[in-house]
């Protein structure tokens, strides 16, 4: 089941500590999962069992799909793997800039 999200919305994993924030998404229904289970708005009362991939997420990293049509910020790291409609999304390479302030 897909949902249309807006930037700034935070989604929590139901199987690990991962929390992500939507930075940029197309205005279409998306099926976002972590560790094989759909993510939800707000932390779950109790974590379920990890059934899917568990390569982990890292706080502060940005995740994007292969075509870079969407972007998420990991606001809390966890053990699960992020995926959109079953396709794993990866860390976006960062451009290193000098500190300007």
């Amino acid at each position: 089941m897909g949902v249309v999200f807006k930037p700034g919305v935070k989604l929590s994993s139901t199987v690990c500590k991962t929390q992500i924030m939507v930075l940029r998404v197309p205005a279409v229904e998306l099926d976002i999962s972590c560790g094989g289970a759909p993510m939800q708005i707000g932390d779950p009362a109790e974590l379920g069992d990890m059934s899917g991939e568990n390569s982990g997420t890292m706080v502060g990293k940005r995740y994007t799909d292969a075509d870079e049509t969407m972007e998420f910020l990991c606001t809390r790291g966890g053990d699960g793997t992020l995926a959109i409609a079953g396709y794993v999304i990866d860390i976006k390479a960062a451009k290193k800039l000098p500190s300007s302030d």
Partner: peptide, 16 residues
Amino acid sequence: RHSNLMAYIFGTVEFM
């Protein structure tokens, strides 16, 4: 706006 300042930070600073 929050979106302006966050765009600046996300565009120029890596977390931690």
